Amino acid sequence: MPPPNPTHRFFVESALWHSSLGNLDLTLKALQRVAQINGKQKEGAKLSVELLQMSLQKHQAQPSMLQMLRSPALRQLFFCITPLWFVLLFSLYGVVMSLQSFEINIYLAQVFFTIVDPPFYFLGFLATKSLGRKRTQTASVLLSGVFIVTCAMIPLDRIFLRITMAVIGKGCLIGSMNCLFMYMGELYPTVMRQRGVNVTNCLANIGSILSPLVGMTSDLYPSLPLFIYGGVLVAACPITAPLPETLGLPLPNTLQDLERRWKEKSGQKQQEQQMVPLQSS
């Protein structure tokens, strides 16, 4: 028999875990404990096993991956996030594997490409808090593509300038990937968040597989791979246009919550178009 763990008194299972196992009595105790911690004793006292059972029956239907194509909102979300994640992985692996084309010590170039990550992680985090997820995602993708294309346009003998543009472009890519990973979790509903993120990652990793093949085009022109890596990033910027902003909004729990949010976004856009005053000819 294993010795008792002294930390179990402080780390308890969540109400969601108990409800998934069907332990409604433990679920009720966990929710009442949370209500007591938050100073909501009256709301916690109103809970009962019958209310929990009714709530579970209402939301127990777990959608399958086929509903990703049946739901218009989820289908549009999936076909926006997957190519965007595909392009980010495609360009990131391509730029990193292009270190030998800069004609400097490969280990020194690897140091430059590594130390740029923490600052852009921090800048990306601040941007998502102030500008929002959507603007940060669009701006970081566009800037990374611009810097990588600029690096490809610089003559090969300007080594310092080329490596500087490549490092900044790679940093913007890191910030964009960090933002998109958080953005995906806030866009997918809770009932299929994990499955949606996993399927998106699996399909997007095809970009990292195809990236070395593009590197072979350097035999035609040395900077052609960088032109391709940066060009696809610039071309991928409009993909973020249909996505809604999630800053300060609650996470969607069901497909109905997601569809309601997309309908509100579409209705707000139509209302803004109707509010534009007509100009006389």
Score class of each variant (00 low, 15 high):
residue 161 L to R: 01
residue 178 N to D: 10
residue 84 L to R: 10
residue 233 L to H: 08
residue 260 R to S: 09
residue 44 G to I: 00
residue 264 E to L: 15
residue 180 L to T: 13
residue 169 G to C: 03
residue 163 I to V: 10
residue 16 L to C: 04
residue 129 K to M: 10
residue 115 I to S: 05
residue 100 Q to F: 12
residue 124 G to V: 02
residue 71 S to M: 05
residue 79 F to K: 06
residue 180 L to S: 11
residue 274 Q to C: 08
residue 186 E to V: 03
residue 227 F to N: 04
residue 55 S to P: 00
residue 173 L to D: 01
residue 135 R to W: 08
residue 87 V to A: 14
residue 61 A to I: 06
residue 57 Q to L: 10
residue 157 D to Q: 12
residue 82 T to C: 12
residue 67 Q to P: 04
residue 278 L to F: 12
residue 222 P to V: 14
residue 173 L to Q: 07
residue 63 P to W: 09
residue 50 E to D: 07
residue 30 A to G: 06
residue 75 R to G: 13
residue 7 T to Y: 08
residue 217 T to W: 05
residue 165 M to Q: 00
residue 208 S to V: 10
residue 201 N to V: 15
residue 167 V to P: 00
residue 195 R to C: 05
residue 234 V to P: 06
residue 269 K to Q: 14
residue 179 C to W: 01
residue 9 R to A: 13
residue 28 L to V: 02
residue 171 G to P: 04
residue 96 V to C: 13
residue 91 S to D: 09
residue 242 P to T: 08
residue 115 I to R: 02
residue 187 L to H: 05
residue 247 L to E: 03
residue 6 P to N: 02
residue 68 M to F: 15
residue 71 S to I: 08
residue 218 S to L: 07
residue 261 R to P: 00
residue 113 F to P: 01
residue 82 T to Y: 12
residue 92 L to Q: 15
residue 273 Q to S: 14
residue 220 L to P: 00
residue 12 V to N: 06
residue 78 F to W: 12
residue 138 T to A: 15
residue 170 K to R: 08
residue 112 F to G: 07
residue 22 G to A: 11
residue 6 P to I: 05
residue 45 A to L: 04
residue 94 G to K: 14
residue 136 T to R: 01
residue 152 A to C: 01
residue 69 L to A: 13
residue 58 K to N: 06
residue 27 T to G: 07
residue 28 L to T: 03
residue 110 Q to Y: 08
residue 55 S to N: 04
residue 274 Q to R: 15
residue 21 L to V: 09
residue 10 F to H: 07
residue 87 V to G: 10
residue 42 K to R: 13
residue 110 Q to C: 13
residue 281 S to Q: 14
residue 131 L to W: 15
residue 278 L to T: 14
residue 141 V to P: 00
residue 210 L to A: 08
residue 245 E to F: 02
residue 111 V to S: 06
residue 31 L to W: 03
residue 132 G to L: 02
residue 230 G to I: 10
residue 253 N to M: 08
residue 122 F to D: 01
residue 201 N to P: 12
residue 111 V to Q: 04
residue 120 F to W: 10
residue 60 Q to P: 05
residue 255 L to Y: 08
residue 170 K to Q: 02
residue 31 L to P: 06
residue 276 V to C: 09
residue 102 F to E: 10
residue 121 Y to N: 11
residue 117 D to N: 12
residue 266 S to Q: 14
